[in-house]
């Protein structure tokens, strides 16, 4: 019976393949668990750091990358993904690692300069060629007939920055009138026809499906995307005021101590703040925190009055509770009868 032979073959195949899990060669490896739009940045940075480390210590280091939605990545680390360093979109997600898995001390954000944010970004708009709806500022997004594309803040880290940008703008403009800010974001999300689950999906909806008049996204994504999507069809609009988005980085203490990689992981994060690291960040359209590098790349980044999270809502725990938790401000926008 040929089928008999086939089945025997498959079974034996499975038995042989079973134990043959890829074995890791003995060399220093670091795992950097990061969020979605940092791929190109870390590809270049990892190569630069490996060279730097080899020159400095003579050790060969390989950095592995994992990318995904910011809080999905944090969950993976909490559940046992052995990240030596995490470089995530929201400090809240690193807080969660500290809180839920106790892999990182609570005060992690104070350990590195600039609240552990080696590069920053802001929230900007992408509009269609010629800006037919005349979108210049956040106010233009709530006008009737303007269709806005932004992902779902419940499932996307970058969408939370988008939401907070709108909230902060309205709050500061109205002299801290929360009711007005709330009215503003409600109006804004009434103009959103599609809530994609992530920033990439939102970009596709806007660019390829031709839906919406304006896409809200990270400045670095828009500047980078502008190049790849073709400048002939879209235009970048950076509002005069926007939010200072601070993606943060941290060592995962329990993991580096277990794997014996503390020194190299620490050096890795420190290198992000070095002139070389800052330069690479700027090249990938992240705003460098180092003054000198920032001055050098000043032409690349439009002048924006940036407000911080602290100015508008406080810390992430509070932000999450008030805005994004179940029944929070964002949910209330969609409650029936409103």
């Amino acid at each position: 019976m040929p089928l008999k032979r086939l089945i025997c073959f498959l079974t034996i195949g499975a038995l042989i393949a079973g134990p043959a899990f890829p074995a890791l060669a003995k060399e220093i490896t670091l795992l950097n668990v990061s969020y979605d739009p940092t791929r190109e940045l870390y590809q270049e940075f990892n190569a630069a750091f490996a060279k730097h480390w080899l020159a400095k210590t003579g050790e060969k280091v390989t950095i592995r990358q994992s990318h995904g939605g910011s809080s999905k990545q944090a969950r993976a680390v909490i559940d046992g993904l052995e990240a030596d360093v995490v470089t995530l979109a929201l400090a809240y997600d690193i807080d969660a690692i500290a809180e839920k898995a106790k892999l990182i001390p609570r005060n992690w954000q104070a350990r590195l300069p600039h609240s552990s944010a080696p590069y920053t970004s802001t929230i900007a708009f992408l509009v269609r060629k010629g800006n037919p709806k005349g979108i210049k500022d956040w106010d233009d997004l709530v006008k009737p007939g303007v269709s806005v594309i932004t992902p779902n803040p419940k499932t996307s880290g970058s969408a939370r920055w988008n939401y907070l940008g709108a909230w902060g703008y309205a709050l500061l403009k109205s002299g801290r009138d929360e009711a007005k800010a709330r009215g503003f974001v409600t109006q804004l999300y009434k103009n959103v026809p599609v809530l994609d689950s992530g920033a990439r999906g939102a970009t596709t909806t806007f660019v390829e499906r031709g839906i919406g008049d304006v896409l809200i996204n990270w400045e670095n994504e828009i500047l980078l995307g502008g190049k790849e999507l073709g400048n002939d069809k879209f235009a970048i609009v950076v509002p005069p005021t926007s939010i200072l988005a601070e993606p943060t980085v941290s060592l995962v203490d329990k993991v580096v101590d277990k794997r014996g990689t503390r020194a190299v992981a620490q050096a890795y994060l420190k290198y992000l703040y070095s002139p070389e690291g800052q330069e690479i960040a700027a090249k990938h359209y992240y705003r460098p925190v180092d003054r000198k590098t920032a001055a050098k790349y000043a032409a690349q980044f439009p002048k924006v009055k940036l407000f911080t999270l602290g100015e508008i809502v406080g810390d992430w725990q509070k932000i999450n509770k008030v805005h994004f938790a179940d029944g929070g401000m964002f949910d209330q926008i969609y409650q029936p009868g409103r």
Partner: peptide, 8 residues
């Protein structure tokens, strides 16, 4: 998924 995103 939205619940998971909130670590719930």
């Amino acid at each position: 998924v939205t619940k998971l995103e909130q670590y719930d």
